[in-house]
Computed example of a mutant assay.
Amino acid sequence: MELTDALAAVGLVLLALGGGTFWSFSTGVMPGLGRTDDPTFVASMRAINRAVVNPLFLLPIFLPPVFLVWAGLLALDSARGWLLATGGVVFFLGAVVVTVAGNVPLNNALDGSTTSAATTRAAFERRWNALNGVRSVASVVAIAVAVWALLV
């Protein structure tokens, strides 16, 4: 196995883990929390946001673009290289940048909010879900492109 293959494989596994996290939040976690009352929603999201600050959660979110772009750069003379790099860039822009610029500031605002649970939730839930939807779609696209790269 050459270095490009190893980097692509690690990148794709991490990408699937990170993308699966966003997808799970979009399809299960947030709809479930959406059925709770305001204090339960706010307390649950605060607990989740604190719990996810750990390497097992963060590495599959932040490392896939590194591995995929690195693999792509090693094979830029081929369609495979361009596809790997593209998958990495799509995930970086659609998941990493959205997370850092959108979801994390909302998480921090939720954590520091001193308003009522209803007001806190209203300022958070719809925007956070929309941003997570972007991360979910970007993840699916990035995974599809990375898999395509491995098939060419």
Score class of each variant (00 low, 15 high):
Leu76Thr: 05
Ala138Arg: 05
Phe62Met: 11
Gly133Leu: 07
Met45His: 07
Val100His: 12
Ser78Pro: 05
Leu68Ala: 11
Thr40Gln: 08
Ala75Ile: 11
Val96Gly: 06
Ala109Val: 02
Ala71Arg: 01
Val42Leu: 12
Gly20Cys: 09
Thr4Asn: 06
Ala101Gly: 11
Trp82Glu: 01
Thr114His: 14
Arg80Asn: 04
Met30Pro: 02
Ala85Pro: 00
Ala117Val: 01
Ala142Lys: 07
Thr115Asp: 12
Gly112Phe: 06
Ser44Phe: 06
Val42Arg: 02
Val137Glu: 00
Ala43Gly: 09
Val97Ala: 15
Gly34Ile: 11
Arg121Asn: 07
Leu14Arg: 02
Ala6Ile: 15
Trp82Leu: 13
Thr119Leu: 11
Arg127Glu: 11
Gly11Ile: 01
Asn132Ile: 10
Ala122Ser: 14
Pro65Asn: 09
Ala6His: 06
Gly112Arg: 15
Asn108Ile: 03
Arg50Gly: 15
Asn108Val: 11
Ala85Asp: 02
Val53Ser: 06
Gly102Phe: 14
Ser136Gly: 04
Asp111Asn: 12
Arg35Cys: 03
Phe67Ser: 06
Thr27Glu: 08
Asn132Gln: 09
Arg121His: 07
Val29Phe: 15
Ser26His: 06
Gly87Leu: 02
Phe22Lys: 02
Thr120Gly: 02
Ser136Glu: 02
Leu73Arg: 13
Gly112Ile: 02
Phe57Asn: 15
Val134Phe: 10
Pro55Ile: 15
Val145Lys: 04
Trp128Lys: 13
Arg127Ile: 05
Val147Ser: 09
Leu84Ser: 00
Ala71Pro: 07
Gly18Arg: 11
Met1Val: 03
Val96Ile: 10
Pro65Leu: 10
Gly32Arg: 10
Val89Ile: 15
Ser113Gly: 12
Met30Asn: 03
Ile61Pro: 02
Val69Asn: 04
Ser116Val: 02
Phe25Thr: 00
Pro64Gln: 13
Ala95Asp: 07
Ile61Thr: 14
Val90Trp: 01
Ala101Arg: 15
Gly94Leu: 08
Val52His: 07
Phe91Trp: 15
Thr115Gln: 13
Asp111Tyr: 06
Val90His: 11
Ala117Tyr: 04
Pro105Phe: 11
Ala9Pro: 01
Phe41Arg: 09
Val10Phe: 04
Thr99Gln: 09
Asn107Arg: 08
Gly11Trp: 01
Pro39Gln: 06
Ala79Asn: 09
Glu2Phe: 03
Phe62Leu: 15
Met45Leu: 12
Arg35Val: 07
Val98Trp: 12
Ser113Lys: 03
Gly88Cys: 09
Gly87Ser: 06
Ala138Lys: 08
Leu151Ser: 13
Gly34Cys: 07
Leu106Pro: 02
Val104Tyr: 13
Leu74Trp: 04
Leu56Glu: 08
Arg127Gly: 04
Val137Pro: 00
Val137Lys: 04
Phe57Glu: 14
Met30Ala: 14
Ile61Asp: 03
Asn107Phe: 11
Met30Tyr: 09
